[in-house]
């Protein structure tokens, strides 16, 4: 455990220049996870929905989240790309 902590500290020291990016990636992961949870929740609702309108509304809501996640992934790729 001690060694793991020491390695983490060393990693932080060495990657000082990448810190803003790392922070952004951490934040992005958090947002993407929250969106994924929302999407799963909506998909479960869609499976139980009966009315045509309700289904269409839920499908669209899922579509919105899908597109937002897609954009998030693009941001992630561009951060990775700029690191390399």
């Amino acid at each position: 455990m001690k060694r793991k902590k020491l390695l983490e500290k060393l990693n932080t020291l060495l990657s000082a220049s990448n810190k803003p990016d790392a922070e952004q990636v951490r934040k992005l992961r958090k947002v993407l996870k929250a969106l994924k949870e929302k999407q799963n929740h909506l998909q479960a609702e869609l499976a139980e929905a009966e009315g045509e309108h309700e289904r269409r509304k839920l499908t669209n809501q899922i579509e919105v989240i899908r597109r937002q996640r897609e954009k998030g992934v693009e941001v992630y790729k561009s951060i990775k790309g700029s690191r390399q």
């Binding site: 952004q24 937002q68 954009k71 998030g72 941001v75």
Partner: peptide, 10 residues
């Protein structure tokens, strides 16, 4: 300086 929202909004 948080710009993530701008980048991910439709």
């Amino acid at each position: 300086g948080e710009l993530l929202g701008n980048e991910m909004m439709l």
